[in-house]
Structure formats: structure tokens, C-alpha cells
Amino acid sequence: MNAADDNLLEQRSPVEVGVWIFILADMCVFAMYFGVFAWDKHLHPEQFVQGQATLNNGFGALNTIVLLISSYFMASAVHAARAQKIEVYARLIRLTIVCGSAFLVVKTAEYTEKISAGFHIASNEFYRNYFSFTGFHMVHVIVGLSFVTYLLFSIRTSEQVRANASFIEGVGLYWHMVDLLWVVLFSLIYLVP
């Protein structure tokens, strides 16, 4: 093995390139969501100001905090798995699931509030974007949470962790992607005036 090979090994991610391609492709779809939101905001400024005023920033901020913390737990869990600290890994995975479920609970409360106030996906451009983009994001949270739950129940011994190392890394990446997409959605939908 020469120096160039060494370099190659150092740079290589433990995760398959395909996982990254999947994540980048998904991020590009969300990039289109951001673009559509900003463009519609440009076309219907008043509608968006009014719509934003009806949103509950508290729900949005709470969800951001919950998801950021869950991402921290997930990153730590991946590090624990690498270090073969199974107890720590299992505890962190459980904490990730708690935070992810909290996100879904808050999201449900928020949707219930909006729907009982008479808003729905076809109310106007603002609500179309609000419900569809946060809804697709929620589907991503549910998918991610299913994978994390699978980790909790099916990958628990140190042999299993070692055998599925790249799968654990992949789930972690997906969960971070869900997190970072929400960071942008929160700022764009709730905060930007």
C-alpha cells in the first residue's frame, strides 16, 4: 500500500456512497420546497404575512430544540457504537426516540390547532406550502424514527453493532438530514418576516 492508498482510506467514509447520494437527492427535493416557498412569498406577500401571524412560533421553536437535541443524541450514539460502548449506545438511542416522538406529538398538536381553526391545505398558497412541506418533513421524521426504533430492537449486542456498523452510521446520517431540513423550514416558515 502506497501513500496515495493511505490517503484514500483516511478520506473514505464508513458509509456507502449510495447513502450519501440518497441523502443529497432528498435534500435537493427539499431545496425545491424552500425555493417554492420563497417564490410564493414573493408573489403573495400579504397572504404570507397574515398566514405567518396565525402560526404558533412556540410550537415551531420547541420542535427545533427537540430535534436539535435528538440529533446530538444520535451523533453521540454513533460515537458510542464505534467505541463499542453498548450500554451508552442503547441509552442514547432511546433518548433519540423520545425526542423524535416528542416532535411528532408537538406537530400533531400544532396541526390540530390549525385544522380546528379552519385552515387546511387548499385554504391558500401559504397554507398549501405550510401543510405540504411540514407534512412531507413529518413523513421523513416518521421514517427516520422507524429506522432508529429498528436499531433499538434489532441491533443491541456488541456483535450486532459491529456487524451493522455502516447501517448505524447511515441511520444517523438520515436523522441528521431530517434535523437540518427542519432547521431551514422553521426559519423560513415561522421566523422570516
Binding site: 473514505r12 467514509s13 444517523g172 441528521h176 438530514m177
Partner: peptide
């Protein structure tokens, strides 16, 4: 978190 520095 995603440790992008390790990626190709």
C-alpha cells in the same frame, strides 16, 4: 454531526 470531512 454528519462528519462531512470523512466523505469522498
Amino acid at each position: 454531526y454528519m462528519e462531512a470531512s470523512t466523505v469522498c
